[in-house]
């Protein structure tokens, strides 16, 4: 049995509490809630598959064995990381806000609300990932490289939390940060190669190396690594892995430090 210090034990209890609460509110009305949580990524996949696969007649990016060569799978394998990222960033702002009144009356480490919420999102994403992997297995498009899907999701969680920690504190101070972040994430969805492969991006445009910019930004790296592992069945390049882990750890460290420095001020916000 793992033995934790009293403070760590207390944080663990609280994280569990907040994770459970988030999961419960998601699965309210049980089966239907379960269905709705899948409906969102599924409709996104369906719409883009239709637009690109049917209307534009784009052929899905080729894979080694061709077994699961389908625009929908290509999309879903990247979307899973992107949605986890946006879910955590948006969530962090809401989770902190939902406990801020409570925190004005009683002390508890506020980061537990964010960590608990993120844990709940991670569980949800794991379920989606299991569904994806099961389909891939059924189509015999599966190899050990699937571990990189897991790696990508872990990086995404770390990076998303880092961004989310900062966004949540800023949103507690300025209430329109939430909308600003929403707009930025919408833009990000198209700037990150989720619906198109990086190779479609011209190398240079307006005097900018835009392909490199698209390829090396953090969410794009996570999306790419997830896709390498579960769609292309390739080992991601060492460069991508190194850059992704650097982004993830650095962002998490900065976000955590910032949050810890500012979280005591939450109780003094009017």
């Amino acid at each position: 049995m793992l033995k934790l210090s009293p403070a760590a034990q207390k944080s663990a209890n609280l994280i569990y509490h907040f994770a459970q609460r988030e999961t419960k509110s998601r699965y309210k009305r049980s089966l239907l809630g379960w269905f709705w949580s899948f409906a969102n990524p599924l409709t996104t996949v369906a719409i883009y598959s239709f637009v690109f696969g049917v209307v534009y007649r784009a052929s899905p990016p080729a894979t080694e064995n061709g077994n699961a060569e389908n625009f929908g799978f290509f999309l879903f394998s990247g979307l899973i990381a992107w949605n986890l990222f946006t879910g955590i960033v948006n969530g962090c702002m809401g989770w902190l806000q939902s406990v801020s009144d409570l925190r004005k009356k009683v002390y508890f480490p506020t980061e537990t609300a964010l960590l608990g919420g993120a844990a709940s999102n991670a569980v949800q994403t794991s379920l989606e990932a299991l569904v994806l992997v099961a389909i891939m297995a059924a189509l015999s498009n599966l190899s050990w490289t699937v571990v990189f899907l897991l790696v990508a999701l872990l990086f995404t969680i770390a990076f998303g939390l880092g961004v989310g920690f900062v966004a949540a504190i800023m949103n507690a101070r300025y209430r329109d940060i939430f909308y600003l972040v929403g707009v930025l994430l919408n833009v990000g969805f198209f700037l990150v190669p989720v619906v198109y492969p990086v190779s479609f991006v011209p190398e240079q445009k307006w005097g900018l190396p835009i392909r490199a910019l698209v390829e090396w930004n953090p969410p794009a790296l996570f999306v790419g690594i997830a896709r390498d592992g579960v769609y292309f069945l390739e080992v991601p390049t060492l460069g991508h892995l190194a850059a992704a882990s650097a982004w993830a750890t650095l962002t998490l460290a900065v976000g955590w430090t910032y949050f810890r420095a500012r979280s005591m001020d939450i109780s003094e916000e009017p």
Binding site: K10, L14, L102, Y107
Partner: peptide, 19 residues
Amino acid sequence: FHPDLTGRENVYLNGAMLG
């Protein structure tokens, strides 16, 4: 106490806050 939670849920939350 969190206003949206029931008394019972709040008791658990309070317990968690106390470790």
